[in-house]
Design a protein around this nucleic acid. Structure first.
Length: 466
RNA sequence: GGAGAGGUGGCUGAGCGGUCGAAAGCGACGGUCUCGAAAACCGUUAUAGGUGUACGCCUAUCAAGGGUUCGAAUCCCUUCCUCUCCGCCA
Protein backbone atom coordinates (compact mmCIF):
# COMPACT_ATOMS: atom_id res chain seq x y z
CA UNK A 1 0.00 0.00 0.00
CA UNK A 2 1.37 3.36 -0.99
CA UNK A 3 1.17 6.69 0.80
CA UNK A 4 -0.91 9.17 -1.15
CA UNK A 5 0.99 12.03 0.47
CA UNK A 6 4.24 10.70 -0.94
CA UNK A 7 2.72 10.57 -4.42
CA UNK A 8 1.25 14.05 -3.96
CA UNK A 9 4.58 15.51 -2.89
CA UNK A 10 6.99 13.53 -5.05
CA UNK A 11 5.13 12.35 -8.13
CA UNK A 12 8.29 11.98 -10.24
CA UNK A 13 9.93 9.79 -7.59
CA UNK A 14 6.86 7.57 -7.55
CA UNK A 15 6.84 7.20 -11.32
CA UNK A 16 10.55 6.42 -11.33
CA UNK A 17 9.92 3.71 -8.75
CA UNK A 18 7.20 2.18 -10.91
CA UNK A 19 9.46 2.35 -13.95
CA UNK A 20 12.01 0.14 -12.20
CA UNK A 21 9.33 -2.53 -12.01
CA UNK A 22 8.43 -1.99 -15.64
CA UNK A 23 5.15 -0.22 -14.86
CA UNK A 24 3.90 2.85 -16.73
CA UNK A 25 3.72 6.18 -14.85
CA UNK A 26 0.65 6.54 -12.62
CA UNK A 27 1.23 9.64 -10.52
CA UNK A 28 -0.97 11.80 -12.73
CA UNK A 29 -3.97 9.50 -12.27
CA UNK A 30 -3.35 9.34 -8.55
CA UNK A 31 -3.10 13.10 -8.19
CA UNK A 32 -6.22 13.78 -10.26
CA UNK A 33 -8.21 11.31 -8.22
CA UNK A 34 -6.77 12.67 -4.99
CA UNK A 35 -7.62 16.27 -5.85
CA UNK A 36 -11.09 15.33 -6.91
CA UNK A 37 -11.68 13.51 -3.69
CA UNK A 38 -10.32 16.28 -1.50
CA UNK A 39 -12.54 18.83 -3.22
CA UNK A 40 -15.55 16.62 -2.55
CA UNK A 41 -14.42 16.01 0.99
CA UNK A 42 -14.00 19.70 1.73
CA UNK A 43 -17.42 20.59 0.38
CA UNK A 44 -18.96 17.70 2.26
CA UNK A 45 -17.35 18.67 5.54
CA UNK A 46 -18.39 22.31 5.19
CA UNK A 47 -21.95 21.24 4.58
CA UNK A 48 -21.82 18.86 7.54
CA UNK A 49 -20.59 21.69 9.73
CA UNK A 50 -23.54 23.85 8.66
CA UNK A 51 -25.94 21.00 9.28
CA UNK A 52 -24.49 20.26 12.71
CA UNK A 53 -24.75 23.92 13.61
CA UNK A 54 -28.38 24.15 12.50
CA UNK A 55 -29.27 20.91 14.27
CA UNK A 56 -27.82 22.24 17.46
CA UNK A 57 -29.98 25.34 17.18
CA UNK A 58 -33.03 23.23 16.45
CA UNK A 59 -32.35 21.36 19.65
CA UNK A 60 -32.16 24.60 21.60
CA UNK A 61 -35.32 25.94 20.00
CA UNK A 62 -37.24 22.76 20.78
CA UNK A 63 -36.15 22.87 24.38
CA UNK A 64 -37.37 26.45 24.84
CA UNK A 65 -40.51 25.69 22.89
CA UNK A 66 -39.67 28.10 20.09
CA UNK A 67 -40.51 27.49 16.46
CA UNK A 68 -37.77 25.73 14.49
CA UNK A 69 -39.49 25.28 11.16
CA UNK A 70 -37.22 27.71 9.32
CA UNK A 71 -34.08 26.02 10.52
CA UNK A 72 -35.45 22.62 9.68
CA UNK A 73 -36.20 23.84 6.20
CA UNK A 74 -32.59 24.98 5.84
CA UNK A 75 -31.28 21.54 6.79
CA UNK A 76 -33.80 19.80 4.58
CA UNK A 77 -32.65 21.91 1.65
CA UNK A 78 -29.09 20.63 1.88
CA UNK A 79 -30.07 17.04 2.26
CA UNK A 80 -29.91 15.95 -1.36
CA UNK A 81 -26.56 17.59 -1.95
CA UNK A 82 -25.17 16.05 1.22
CA UNK A 83 -26.36 12.58 0.30
CA UNK A 84 -24.76 12.91 -3.11
CA UNK A 85 -21.51 14.12 -1.58
CA UNK A 86 -21.50 11.26 0.95
CA UNK A 87 -21.83 8.78 -1.85
CA UNK A 88 -19.19 10.42 -4.05
CA UNK A 89 -16.74 10.73 -1.19
CA UNK A 90 -17.16 7.10 -0.30
CA UNK A 91 -16.79 5.96 -3.88
CA UNK A 92 -13.71 8.06 -4.58
CA UNK A 93 -12.13 7.09 -1.27
CA UNK A 94 -12.60 3.42 -2.02
CA UNK A 95 -11.28 3.84 -5.53
CA UNK A 96 -8.18 5.58 -4.23
CA UNK A 97 -7.58 2.91 -1.58
CA UNK A 98 -7.94 0.11 -4.11
CA UNK A 99 -5.57 1.83 -6.49
CA UNK A 100 -3.00 2.53 -3.78
CA UNK A 101 -3.12 -1.12 -2.76
CA UNK A 102 -2.66 -2.47 -6.26
CA UNK A 103 0.89 -1.28 -7.00
CA UNK A 104 4.01 -3.10 -5.79
CA UNK A 105 6.37 -1.73 -3.18
CA UNK A 106 9.03 0.84 -4.01
CA UNK A 107 12.40 -0.83 -4.51
CA UNK A 108 15.46 0.00 -2.48
CA UNK A 109 18.28 1.81 -4.29
CA UNK A 110 20.42 -1.22 -3.51
CA UNK A 111 18.32 -3.47 -5.73
CA UNK A 112 20.02 -4.01 -9.09
CA UNK A 113 18.13 -3.32 -12.30
CA UNK A 114 17.02 -6.33 -14.27
CA UNK A 115 14.14 -8.23 -15.79
CA UNK A 116 14.18 -11.70 -14.29
CA UNK A 117 16.14 -14.22 -12.22
CA UNK A 118 19.04 -14.09 -14.67
CA UNK A 119 19.82 -10.56 -13.53
CA UNK A 120 20.06 -11.36 -9.82
CA UNK A 121 23.45 -10.62 -8.23
CA UNK A 122 25.42 -12.96 -6.05
CA UNK A 123 26.63 -11.27 -2.86
CA UNK A 124 28.47 -14.12 -1.12
CA UNK A 125 29.12 -17.82 -1.17
CA UNK A 126 29.75 -20.43 1.52
CA UNK A 127 31.35 -23.86 1.25
CA UNK A 128 32.27 -25.84 -1.81
CA UNK A 129 30.10 -28.39 -3.56
CA UNK A 130 31.17 -31.90 -2.50
CA UNK A 131 32.79 -34.13 -5.06
CA UNK A 132 30.28 -36.93 -5.56
CA UNK A 133 30.55 -39.47 -8.31
CA UNK A 134 27.27 -39.99 -10.17
CA UNK A 135 25.23 -38.03 -7.66
CA UNK A 136 21.59 -39.06 -7.33
CA UNK A 137 18.59 -36.83 -6.89
CA UNK A 138 16.76 -36.91 -3.59
CA UNK A 139 13.77 -38.86 -4.87
CA UNK A 140 16.01 -41.60 -6.24
CA UNK A 141 17.74 -41.88 -2.88
CA UNK A 142 14.50 -41.69 -0.91
CA UNK A 143 12.63 -44.24 -2.98
CA UNK A 144 15.56 -46.65 -2.94
CA UNK A 145 15.64 -46.41 0.84
CA UNK A 146 11.90 -47.08 0.93
CA UNK A 147 11.38 -43.94 3.01
CA UNK A 148 9.82 -41.66 0.39
CA UNK A 149 6.55 -42.76 -1.21
CA UNK A 150 5.15 -40.70 -4.07
CA UNK A 151 2.64 -43.34 -5.15
CA UNK A 152 0.98 -43.37 -1.78
CA UNK A 153 0.93 -39.57 -1.79
CA UNK A 154 -0.71 -39.51 -5.23
CA UNK A 155 -3.34 -41.98 -4.07
CA UNK A 156 -4.16 -39.81 -1.07
CA UNK A 157 -3.93 -36.34 -2.57
CA UNK A 158 -2.74 -36.31 -6.17
CA UNK A 159 0.36 -34.69 -7.58
CA UNK A 160 2.80 -32.54 -5.62
CA UNK A 161 2.49 -34.38 -2.31
CA UNK A 162 4.92 -36.71 -0.59
CA UNK A 163 4.71 -39.39 2.07
CA UNK A 164 7.83 -39.59 4.20
CA UNK A 165 8.49 -42.54 6.44
CA UNK A 166 10.85 -43.70 9.15
CA UNK A 167 14.15 -41.90 9.42
CA UNK A 168 13.26 -39.34 6.74
CA UNK A 169 10.03 -38.39 8.50
CA UNK A 170 12.07 -38.06 11.63
CA UNK A 171 14.71 -35.98 9.90
CA UNK A 172 12.03 -33.58 8.72
CA UNK A 173 10.92 -33.15 12.32
CA UNK A 174 14.53 -32.91 13.51
CA UNK A 175 15.36 -30.18 11.01
CA UNK A 176 12.47 -28.03 12.23
CA UNK A 177 13.38 -28.60 15.86
CA UNK A 178 17.01 -27.75 15.16
CA UNK A 179 16.12 -24.52 13.37
CA UNK A 180 13.66 -23.39 16.05
CA UNK A 181 16.19 -24.08 18.80
CA UNK A 182 18.81 -22.08 16.92
CA UNK A 183 16.62 -19.05 16.32
CA UNK A 184 15.05 -18.99 19.78
CA UNK A 185 18.18 -20.01 21.67
CA UNK A 186 20.84 -17.97 19.91
CA UNK A 187 19.10 -15.24 17.96
CA UNK A 188 16.39 -14.06 20.33
CA UNK A 189 13.31 -15.04 18.36
CA UNK A 190 10.15 -15.96 20.24
CA UNK A 191 8.55 -19.21 19.15
CA UNK A 192 4.91 -18.94 18.10
CA UNK A 193 2.32 -21.52 17.18
CA UNK A 194 -0.15 -19.62 15.00
CA UNK A 195 -3.42 -20.51 13.25
CA UNK A 196 -3.00 -22.00 9.79
CA UNK A 197 -6.37 -20.75 8.56
CA UNK A 198 -6.86 -16.99 8.31
CA UNK A 199 -9.39 -14.39 7.23
CA UNK A 200 -9.41 -12.24 4.10
CA UNK A 201 -8.17 -9.10 5.80
CA UNK A 202 -5.15 -10.96 7.16
CA UNK A 203 -4.22 -12.08 3.65
CA UNK A 204 -4.73 -8.51 2.50
CA UNK A 205 -2.41 -7.22 5.21
CA UNK A 206 0.65 -8.99 3.85
CA UNK A 207 -0.23 -8.23 0.24
CA UNK A 208 -1.46 -11.70 -0.69
CA UNK A 209 -5.00 -10.44 -1.37
CA UNK A 210 -6.61 -9.21 -3.52
CA UNK A 211 -4.11 -9.96 -6.29
CA UNK A 212 -2.75 -13.41 -5.65
CA UNK A 213 -5.73 -15.67 -5.05
CA UNK A 214 -4.37 -18.10 -7.62
CA UNK A 215 -1.52 -19.09 -5.34
CA UNK A 216 -3.70 -19.99 -2.42
CA UNK A 217 -5.87 -22.78 -1.15
CA UNK A 218 -9.21 -21.89 0.24
CA UNK A 219 -10.71 -23.65 3.24
CA UNK A 220 -14.43 -23.51 2.58
CA UNK A 221 -16.88 -25.25 4.80
CA UNK A 222 -19.18 -27.55 2.91
CA UNK A 223 -22.58 -26.27 2.08
CA UNK A 224 -25.06 -27.83 -0.27
CA UNK A 225 -25.46 -26.25 -3.68
CA UNK A 226 -29.06 -25.65 -2.82
CA UNK A 227 -28.13 -23.66 0.26
CA UNK A 228 -25.61 -21.61 -1.71
CA UNK A 229 -28.18 -20.92 -4.41
CA UNK A 230 -30.85 -19.91 -1.94
CA UNK A 231 -28.44 -17.65 -0.13
CA UNK A 232 -27.52 -15.88 -3.35
CA UNK A 233 -31.15 -15.61 -4.45
CA UNK A 234 -32.14 -14.03 -1.16
CA UNK A 235 -30.13 -10.98 -2.20
CA UNK A 236 -31.80 -10.63 -5.58
CA UNK A 237 -33.54 -7.39 -6.44
CA UNK A 238 -37.34 -8.01 -6.57
CA UNK A 239 -37.49 -5.86 -9.71
CA UNK A 240 -35.01 -8.21 -11.40
CA UNK A 241 -37.00 -11.28 -10.39
CA UNK A 242 -40.16 -9.72 -11.77
CA UNK A 243 -38.32 -8.65 -14.91
CA UNK A 244 -37.06 -12.15 -15.51
CA UNK A 245 -40.50 -13.65 -15.00
CA UNK A 246 -41.87 -11.34 -17.63
CA UNK A 247 -39.01 -12.28 -19.92
CA UNK A 248 -37.55 -8.77 -19.97
CA UNK A 249 -34.30 -9.90 -18.40
CA UNK A 250 -32.45 -12.92 -19.68
CA UNK A 251 -31.55 -15.73 -17.30
CA UNK A 252 -27.91 -14.95 -17.91
CA UNK A 253 -28.27 -11.27 -16.97
CA UNK A 254 -30.35 -12.21 -13.97
CA UNK A 255 -27.72 -14.62 -12.67
CA UNK A 256 -24.99 -12.06 -13.27
CA UNK A 257 -26.93 -9.47 -11.33
CA UNK A 258 -27.63 -11.84 -8.44
CA UNK A 259 -24.02 -12.94 -8.22
CA UNK A 260 -22.77 -9.36 -8.26
CA UNK A 261 -24.79 -8.68 -5.12
CA UNK A 262 -24.50 -12.09 -3.45
CA UNK A 263 -22.69 -12.27 -0.11
CA UNK A 264 -18.97 -12.30 -0.73
CA UNK A 265 -18.04 -13.36 2.74
CA UNK A 266 -15.39 -16.02 2.38
CA UNK A 267 -14.51 -18.69 4.81
CA UNK A 268 -10.82 -19.05 5.52
CA UNK A 269 -7.60 -19.24 3.57
CA UNK A 270 -4.80 -21.72 4.22
CA UNK A 271 -1.60 -19.84 4.89
CA UNK A 272 1.01 -19.86 2.14
CA UNK A 273 3.70 -19.16 4.74
CA UNK A 274 3.86 -18.42 8.47
CA UNK A 275 4.72 -14.86 7.46
CA UNK A 276 0.97 -14.36 7.09
CA UNK A 277 -0.12 -14.94 10.71
CA UNK A 278 3.17 -13.81 12.27
CA UNK A 279 3.32 -10.42 10.56
CA UNK A 280 -0.35 -9.83 11.27
CA UNK A 281 0.24 -10.22 15.00
CA UNK A 282 0.61 -6.42 14.99
CA UNK A 283 -2.35 -5.83 12.68
CA UNK A 284 -4.25 -2.71 13.71
CA UNK A 285 -2.05 -2.09 16.73
CA UNK A 286 0.12 0.67 18.09
CA UNK A 287 3.18 -1.09 19.51
CA UNK A 288 5.45 0.46 22.14
CA UNK A 289 8.57 1.64 20.37
CA UNK A 290 10.66 0.24 23.25
CA UNK A 291 9.48 -3.30 22.45
CA UNK A 292 10.96 -3.18 18.95
CA UNK A 293 12.45 -4.97 17.20
CA UNK A 294 10.00 -7.75 17.89
CA UNK A 295 11.26 -11.09 16.58
CA UNK A 296 9.03 -14.13 16.16
CA UNK A 297 9.45 -17.52 14.55
CA UNK A 298 7.21 -20.47 13.80
CA UNK A 299 7.32 -23.84 12.13
CA UNK A 300 4.17 -24.38 10.13
CA UNK A 301 2.95 -26.21 7.09
CA UNK A 302 2.62 -23.95 4.05
CA UNK A 303 0.00 -24.47 1.37
CA UNK A 304 0.50 -23.32 -2.19
CA UNK A 305 -1.42 -24.11 -5.32
CA UNK A 306 1.65 -23.60 -7.56
CA UNK A 307 -0.76 -22.62 -10.31
CA UNK A 308 1.92 -20.76 -12.26
CA UNK A 309 4.40 -23.61 -12.11
CA UNK A 310 2.69 -26.36 -14.05
CA UNK A 311 5.25 -28.77 -15.39
CA UNK A 312 8.07 -27.28 -13.30
CA UNK A 313 9.85 -29.50 -10.79
CA UNK A 314 7.27 -32.24 -11.02
CA UNK A 315 9.59 -35.00 -9.86
CA UNK A 316 10.33 -35.37 -6.18
CA UNK A 317 9.42 -33.06 -3.35
CA UNK A 318 11.07 -29.85 -4.48
CA UNK A 319 7.81 -28.09 -5.28
CA UNK A 320 4.87 -29.27 -3.23
CA UNK A 321 1.34 -28.16 -2.45
CA UNK A 322 2.20 -28.59 1.20
CA UNK A 323 5.54 -28.28 2.97
CA UNK A 324 6.98 -27.34 6.34
CA UNK A 325 8.93 -24.16 6.83
CA UNK A 326 10.45 -22.30 9.76
CA UNK A 327 9.70 -18.63 9.25
CA UNK A 328 11.36 -15.58 10.78
CA UNK A 329 9.45 -12.32 11.14
CA UNK A 330 10.71 -9.04 12.56
CA UNK A 331 8.65 -5.98 13.35
CA UNK A 332 10.92 -2.96 13.69
CA UNK A 333 10.94 0.80 14.02
CA UNK A 334 11.56 2.47 10.64
CA UNK A 335 15.24 3.21 11.24
CA UNK A 336 15.97 -0.36 12.35
CA UNK A 337 14.80 -2.32 9.35
CA UNK A 338 17.90 -2.04 7.18
CA UNK A 339 20.20 -3.57 9.80
CA UNK A 340 17.55 -6.07 10.79
CA UNK A 341 17.37 -7.29 7.20
CA UNK A 342 21.09 -8.15 7.21
CA UNK A 343 20.79 -9.75 10.62
CA UNK A 344 17.81 -11.88 9.59
CA UNK A 345 19.55 -13.07 6.46
CA UNK A 346 22.54 -14.12 8.48
CA UNK A 347 20.28 -16.02 10.92
CA UNK A 348 18.98 -18.02 7.97
CA UNK A 349 22.47 -18.57 6.59
CA UNK A 350 23.61 -19.88 9.96
CA UNK A 351 21.22 -22.81 9.60
CA UNK A 352 23.03 -23.93 6.45
CA UNK A 353 26.45 -23.27 7.94
CA UNK A 354 25.69 -25.45 10.95
CA UNK A 355 24.47 -28.19 8.64
CA UNK A 356 27.58 -27.65 6.51
CA UNK A 357 25.62 -27.25 3.31
CA UNK A 358 27.16 -25.16 0.50
CA UNK A 359 25.11 -22.15 -0.45
CA UNK A 360 25.22 -18.73 -2.03
CA UNK A 361 23.30 -15.59 -1.20
CA UNK A 362 21.95 -13.38 -3.95
CA UNK A 363 20.12 -10.08 -4.05
CA UNK A 364 17.09 -10.18 -6.32
CA UNK A 365 16.97 -7.72 -9.19
CA UNK A 366 14.12 -5.28 -9.76
CA UNK A 367 12.13 -7.61 -11.98
CA UNK A 368 12.38 -10.59 -9.64
CA UNK A 369 11.56 -8.86 -6.36
CA UNK A 370 8.14 -9.70 -4.93
CA UNK A 371 5.11 -7.43 -4.70
CA UNK A 372 5.43 -6.41 -1.03
CA UNK A 373 9.21 -6.31 -0.81
CA UNK A 374 11.59 -3.39 -1.26
CA UNK A 375 14.67 -5.62 -1.19
CA UNK A 376 15.04 -9.38 -1.07
CA UNK A 377 17.95 -11.72 -0.47
CA UNK A 378 17.52 -15.28 -1.62
CA UNK A 379 19.68 -18.02 -0.19
CA UNK A 380 20.31 -20.86 -2.61
CA UNK A 381 21.60 -24.22 -1.48
CA UNK A 382 23.71 -26.52 -3.61
CA UNK A 383 21.85 -29.58 -4.91
CA UNK A 384 24.37 -32.14 -6.24
CA UNK A 385 21.64 -34.15 -8.01
CA UNK A 386 20.75 -31.23 -10.27
CA UNK A 387 24.16 -29.57 -9.99
CA UNK A 388 22.58 -26.18 -9.37
CA UNK A 389 21.93 -23.78 -6.51
CA UNK A 390 18.23 -23.78 -5.61
CA UNK A 391 16.29 -21.31 -3.51
CA UNK A 392 15.88 -22.42 0.09
CA UNK A 393 15.23 -19.09 1.79
CA UNK A 394 13.99 -15.66 0.87
CA UNK A 395 14.48 -12.69 3.22
CA UNK A 396 12.57 -9.51 2.48
CA UNK A 397 12.39 -6.03 3.91
CA UNK A 398 8.90 -4.71 3.24
CA UNK A 399 9.49 -1.33 4.92
CA UNK A 400 6.08 0.18 5.79
CA UNK A 401 4.29 -1.35 2.79
CA UNK A 402 2.55 -4.11 4.75
CA UNK A 403 2.24 -1.97 7.87
CA UNK A 404 0.10 0.51 5.94
CA UNK A 405 -2.17 -2.28 4.77
CA UNK A 406 -2.42 -3.63 8.30
CA UNK A 407 -2.47 -0.25 10.02
CA UNK A 408 0.38 -1.32 12.29
CA UNK A 409 2.13 1.52 14.08
CA UNK A 410 4.63 2.16 16.82
CA UNK A 411 5.07 5.00 19.25
CA UNK A 412 7.77 5.88 21.74
CA UNK A 413 6.70 6.50 25.34
CA UNK A 414 5.77 10.14 25.79
CA UNK A 415 5.72 10.72 22.05
CA UNK A 416 2.65 12.16 20.41
CA UNK A 417 3.44 11.05 16.89
CA UNK A 418 3.06 7.45 15.81
CA UNK A 419 4.78 5.90 12.80
CA UNK A 420 4.11 2.85 10.69
CA UNK A 421 6.35 -0.03 11.70
CA UNK A 422 8.58 -1.83 9.24
CA UNK A 423 8.03 -5.53 8.62
CA UNK A 424 10.53 -8.15 7.51
CA UNK A 425 10.13 -11.81 6.81
CA UNK A 426 12.51 -14.58 5.92
CA UNK A 427 12.56 -18.33 5.66
CA UNK A 428 14.75 -19.72 8.34
CA UNK A 429 14.54 -22.06 6.42
CA UNK A 430 12.33 -24.20 4.16
CA UNK A 431 12.34 -27.64 5.78
CA UNK A 432 11.32 -29.75 2.79
CA UNK A 433 14.03 -28.33 0.60
CA UNK A 434 16.54 -28.55 3.43
CA UNK A 435 15.78 -32.24 3.73
CA UNK A 436 16.50 -32.61 0.03
CA UNK A 437 19.76 -30.70 0.39
CA UNK A 438 20.91 -32.86 3.28
CA UNK A 439 20.04 -36.06 1.42
CA UNK A 440 21.84 -35.06 -1.75
CA UNK A 441 24.93 -33.48 -0.17
CA UNK A 442 25.39 -36.25 2.40
CA UNK A 443 24.67 -39.18 0.06
CA UNK A 444 27.11 -42.08 0.03
CA UNK A 445 28.09 -44.35 -2.88
CA UNK A 446 25.97 -47.16 -1.37
CA UNK A 447 22.86 -44.98 -1.32
CA UNK A 448 22.90 -44.33 2.39
CA UNK A 449 22.81 -40.86 3.88
CA UNK A 450 25.08 -39.58 6.62
CA UNK A 451 23.28 -37.49 9.23
CA UNK A 452 24.93 -34.06 9.68
CA UNK A 453 26.48 -33.85 13.13
CA UNK A 454 24.36 -30.84 14.10
CA UNK A 455 21.26 -32.93 13.54
CA UNK A 456 22.29 -36.07 15.42
CA UNK A 457 21.15 -34.90 18.84
CA UNK A 458 17.71 -34.41 17.32
CA UNK A 459 17.64 -37.92 15.87
CA UNK A 460 18.50 -39.96 18.91
CA UNK A 461 22.18 -40.04 17.94
CA UNK A 462 21.53 -41.66 14.56
CA UNK A 463 24.59 -41.24 12.33
CA UNK A 464 23.47 -42.75 9.07
CA UNK A 465 20.24 -43.57 7.27
CA UNK A 466 20.23 -46.79 5.28
C1' G B 1 -25.90 -26.81 15.94
C1' G B 2 -29.81 -24.64 19.88
C1' A B 3 -30.89 -20.71 23.78
C1' G B 4 -29.38 -16.26 26.05
C1' A B 5 -26.12 -11.89 27.48
C1' G B 6 -22.75 -8.44 25.78
C1' G B 7 -18.95 -5.23 22.82
C1' U B 8 -18.16 2.70 25.27
C1' G B 9 -11.36 6.32 25.79
C1' G B 10 -4.72 3.04 28.42
C1' C B 11 -8.05 0.09 32.17
C1' U B 12 -12.83 -0.25 35.20
C1' G B 13 -17.43 1.73 34.13
C1' A B 14 -21.92 5.42 33.58
C1' G B 15 -24.87 7.31 29.66
C1' C B 16 -29.93 4.53 26.20
C1' G B 17 -32.66 10.52 20.81
C1' G B 18 -30.22 17.07 21.41
C1' U B 19 -25.68 21.28 24.63
C1' C B 20 -21.78 13.80 24.62
C1' G B 21 -15.38 13.01 22.21
C1' A B 22 -18.47 11.17 26.04
C1' A B 23 -19.61 11.28 33.82
C1' A B 24 -16.86 8.97 37.68
C1' G B 25 -12.83 6.09 39.39
C1' C B 26 -8.00 3.98 38.37
C1' G B 27 -3.52 4.56 35.72
C1' A B 28 -0.03 7.89 33.21
C1' C B 29 2.16 12.77 32.69
C1' G B 30 3.14 18.00 34.50
C1' G B 31 3.04 21.29 38.77
C1' U B 32 2.67 22.84 44.21
C1' C B 33 4.86 20.98 48.72
C1' U B 34 9.87 18.31 50.14
C1' C B 35 16.88 17.85 51.08
C1' G B 36 14.64 13.89 48.14
C1' A B 37 10.50 10.62 47.96
C1' A B 38 5.56 9.23 49.54
C1' A B 39 0.87 11.35 50.79
C1' A B 40 -2.23 15.46 49.77
C1' C B 41 -3.80 19.21 46.44
C1' C B 42 -4.09 21.60 41.35
C1' G B 43 -3.84 20.71 36.21
C1' U B 44 -3.19 17.72 31.60
C1' U B 45 -4.58 12.98 29.34
C1' A B 46 -7.61 9.63 22.15
C1' U B 47 -6.93 8.73 16.93
C1' A B 48 -7.33 9.78 11.79
C1' G B 49 -8.40 13.25 7.95
C1' G B 50 -9.39 18.09 5.64
C1' U B 51 -8.20 23.32 5.66
C1' G B 52 -5.21 27.93 6.57
C1' U B 53 1.29 31.41 6.84
C1' A B 54 -0.43 30.96 11.77
C1' C B 55 -2.75 30.62 18.02
C1' G B 56 -6.44 27.72 15.09
C1' C B 57 -10.89 26.02 12.62
C1' C B 58 -13.71 21.98 10.63
C1' U B 59 -15.06 16.63 9.80
C1' A B 60 -15.19 11.61 11.31
C1' U B 61 -14.66 7.86 15.05
C1' C B 62 -18.54 4.86 21.57
C1' A B 63 -16.82 -3.34 17.59
C1' A B 64 -17.56 -2.81 11.79
C1' G B 65 -20.90 -1.51 7.78
C1' G B 66 -25.64 0.26 6.28
C1' G B 67 -30.46 2.69 7.65
C1' U B 68 -34.26 5.92 10.30
C1' U B 69 -34.06 11.25 11.98
C1' C B 70 -33.38 18.23 11.47
C1' G B 71 -30.06 15.60 14.99
C1' A B 72 -27.62 8.76 16.83
C1' A B 73 -23.01 6.09 21.76
C1' U B 74 -28.45 5.96 22.43
C1' C B 75 -33.63 3.43 17.68
C1' C B 76 -33.61 -0.39 13.31
C1' C B 77 -30.93 -3.98 9.96
C1' U B 78 -26.50 -6.84 8.60
C1' U B 79 -21.72 -8.67 9.80
C1' C B 80 -17.72 -9.70 13.14
C1' C B 81 -16.12 -10.77 17.99
C1' U B 82 -16.61 -12.12 23.38
C1' C B 83 -19.11 -14.59 27.41
C1' U B 84 -22.86 -18.22 29.77
C1' C B 85 -25.88 -22.69 29.37
C1' C B 86 -27.25 -27.11 26.35
C1' G B 87 -25.78 -30.49 22.35
C1' C B 88 -21.65 -32.51 19.52
C1' C B 89 -16.51 -33.34 19.47
C1' A B 90 -9.97 -34.24 19.39
Amino acid sequence: MHDIRFIREQPEAFDRALARRGIAPMSKEFRTLDEERRAVQTERQDLQAKRNDASKKIGEAKRTGANADDLMAVVAAMKDRLTALDETDRRLGQKLQDLLASYPNILSDEVPDGRDENDNKEVRRFGTPPAIENPKEHFELGEALGLMDFEAAAKLSGARFTVLKGALARMERALGDFMLDLHTGEFGYTEVSPPLLVKDEIMFGVGQLPKFTDEMFFAGRTKSREALLREALSTADPADIEGMRRGEISLEDFVASVLSKAPTKEDLWLITTAEVPLTNLVNNMIVDREKLPMRVTARTPCFRSEAGASGKDTRGMLRQHQFYKVELVSITAPEQSKDEHERMTSCAETVLKRLELPFRTIVLCAGDTGFSSSKTYDIEVWLPGQKVYREISSCSNCLDFQARRMNARCRAAGDKQSAFVHTLNGSGIAIGRCLIAVMENYQQPDGSIVVPSALRPYMGGLERIG
